[in-house]
């Protein structure tokens, strides 16, 4: 299990024990964290599981791949550290990860 903190846009923090090899999106959805819709169910096809990774974690988490980039790119509220959380695989290396949720999913 890996500890992940999700911070809602209004500052509310949720600390979750996520299962390794699942996704950061699943960690939120399975634990009822508001603010992640994940309409497509983890297919990298809707961009409604958008998170903003805290900058000191960006190196560990890594950059989006081409498919993810093409979805993120259409979001006007995209930030430099934006990722789709369904594409971030949970592992020991992410223990302590902090992600911020955008004001809206679109």
């Amino acid at each position: 299990m890996t500890t992940i903190t999700y911070i809602e846009h209004d500052g509310t923090e949720h600390v979750v024990e996520a299962e390794n090899d699942s996704s950061v999106m699943r960690g939120a959805v399975d634990n009822g964290i508001p603010g992640i819709d994940a309409d497509c169910g983890g297919e990298c096809s809707c961009a409604t599981c958008h998170v903003i990774v805290t900058s000191n974690w960006m190196e560990v988490v890594g950059r989006p791949n081409d498919t993810e980039e093409s979805m993120l790119d259409l979001n006007p509220e995209r930030e430099p550290n934006s990722r789709l959380s369904c594409q971030i695989v949970v592992s020991d290396a992410l223990d302590g990860l902090i992600v911020n949720l955008p004001e809206f999913q679109m």
Binding site: D39, S45, C46, S70, M71, F104
Partner: peptide, 18 residues
Amino acid sequence: ARHHLSFGFGIHRCMGNR
């Protein structure tokens, strides 16, 4: 309930869904 196809998926997904 949000897991439906009406807005499409991928890069052409409905822009006005919200």
